[in-house]
Amino acid sequence: MRDGEISDAAWAVIAPLLPPVGRARGRWRDHRQVLEGIVCKFRTGVPWRDLPEQFCGFDKAVYRRRNVVERCFHRLKQWRGIATRYEKHPARYQAVITLASTLIWLAQ
């Protein structure tokens, strides 16, 4: 058995514990494929992006765009008033986010 593969006997025990197939929203992956990817990741210690194609179908372009968005949120959260939602009125909060975004953009 290769790293990440779950035996048929183990799968027979695990499968009934998972939610029914077909109730997912968005992209769908087979339960066994996802669990084998998780097992492979933790057995080998490789990053998620380095998992073999059979487990996750990692797309570097999507990862790169997601990384840009996550770094943007991280920079915004450095502003304490944004991270703690100091402004309770939605229009003021949006104005603070716009101001912070503009200042971050100009600082680059």
Rank of each mutant, 00 (worst) to 15 (best):
A83D: 07
D59K: 15
K41R: 12
R66M: 15
L99I: 04
G4Y: 00
A100E: 09
R71P: 08
N67V: 06
P20H: 09
G37A: 08
V68M: 13
G37Q: 03
R80S: 12
A61Y: 10
E87G: 02
V21C: 03
H89K: 13
D59T: 06
L35K: 01
G4R: 00
T102K: 06
R49F: 13
Q108S: 12
E53C: 04
A12H: 07
H31G: 06
P90R: 13
Q54C: 14
H31C: 03
P47E: 10
E36T: 00
V39M: 02
G57Q: 09
M1E: 04
N67M: 13
R27H: 15
E87D: 12
T98S: 10
D8A: 07
Q78M: 11
A100Y: 04
N67G: 07
W105S: 04
G57V: 12
Q108N: 12
M1Q: 05
E5V: 00
A15G: 04
F58Q: 05
D30V: 03
D8R: 03
I97L: 14
A12Q: 14
T102N: 06
A24V: 07
F55L: 04
Y63R: 08
L106W: 15
L35D: 03
V96P: 03
A24C: 04
T98F: 09
A91V: 11
A100D: 03
L76P: 01
A91C: 06
W79C: 14
G45E: 06
T84K: 09
G22Q: 09
I82W: 00
I82F: 05
V13A: 12
E53I: 02
L18Q: 04
